[in-house]
Design a protein around this nucleic acid. Structure first.
Lengths: 151, 151
DNA sequence: AAATATAATTTGATTATCAAAGCATTTGGG
DNA sequence: CCCAAATGCTTTGATAATCAAATTATATTT
């Protein structure tokens, strides 16, 4: 009985947290510098990363979207000045993308946001609580890998 | 030092989990019965809940979408046979929605998925740790609401 | 050299979303 | 009691994100 209730309430809290985090991210994005970026675009910038060139196909795979979707997203990010694109010299079919300086700034700002979010979430926890949380997160992670056979 | 690392790893786990959960949920949906439902639609079904009639506006508020968006979503769910809609007798402006039998089945199937997830999250935790977890998650949620000034 | 495979883009469609306008009904102030 | 304002919902018109399939250009294989 009590077990069921605990499960139930944990479920509810998790669902709520999930929604809240998305909301917070959106809100924070919308009001800062870089407010011309959507969450999706920010995640693409995050995935491209700093100081490296990526191919379109690898990036699309990482992001779990089709390359067609990525093409249009990158078109927009180039238009907005966050990304550069060039053809590879080795293989002229391949297109390399990388962040511009402005893109790097956006990346860093987003990284800051994440750090801040996690930091503030954890700042009131004692060691013991932190450990429980890590244990749980790791459990879930492992569970997914096993059960759903993740790449 | 060690603190920073813990934060860092929690951050990474969270980001990964976030992507995985959505993905898995989508995958599970796509292959079962109810494969004509999108994740979004399933979340609406989840929010409506079993054994109660809800108003459109309350549901929209809960889901944090505009009522216009909900109207079209409900149109589709009715067309697919998951939801019923009727005007309230007390107040003819109000529209009540509720799950059909098929809707309830979909609800339960989705509930299974969540139960599974939570169950796996809690393996290895003893009673005490479970309680700590609830406290931790609730705190984080409250904290976010305050810090980011949620409605 | 021709056939096949690969990488990216384009095209045409769908879904989810919003803001603002519109419609029907209820409520509150004169 | 009536009319103006408020409320609840739907419609409209627009945009973003996404996919699958067709297309284009280049590499690889046979």
């Amino acid at each position: 009985m009590i077990n069921i209730n605990i499960h139930q309430s944990i479920n509810e809290i998790l669902v709520r947290l999930f929604a809240d985090i998305l909301d917070i991210e959106e809100k924070c994005l919308g009001q800062g510098e870089f407010s011309d970026l959507s969450i999706t675009e920010m995640h693409i910038i995050d995935n491209i990363g700093i100081d490296k060139e990526r191919t379109m196909s690898n990036t699309a795979k990482d992001l779990r979207i089709t390359s067609g979707t990525l093409t249009t997203a990158i078109d927009n990010l180039i238009r907005k000045g966050y990304v550069e694109r060039r053809r590879s010299n080795n293989d002229r079919r391949v297109v390399m993308i990388k962040l511009t300086e402005k893109g790097v700034l956006a990346y860093k700002s987003h990284e800051e946001f994440h750090k801040d979010l996690v930091f503030s979430a954890l700042t009131n926890l004692d060691k013991n609580e932190e450990e429980v949380l890590i244990k749980v997160l790791t459990n879930i992670d492992v569970f997914f890998k096993n059960k759903y056979n993740f790449s």
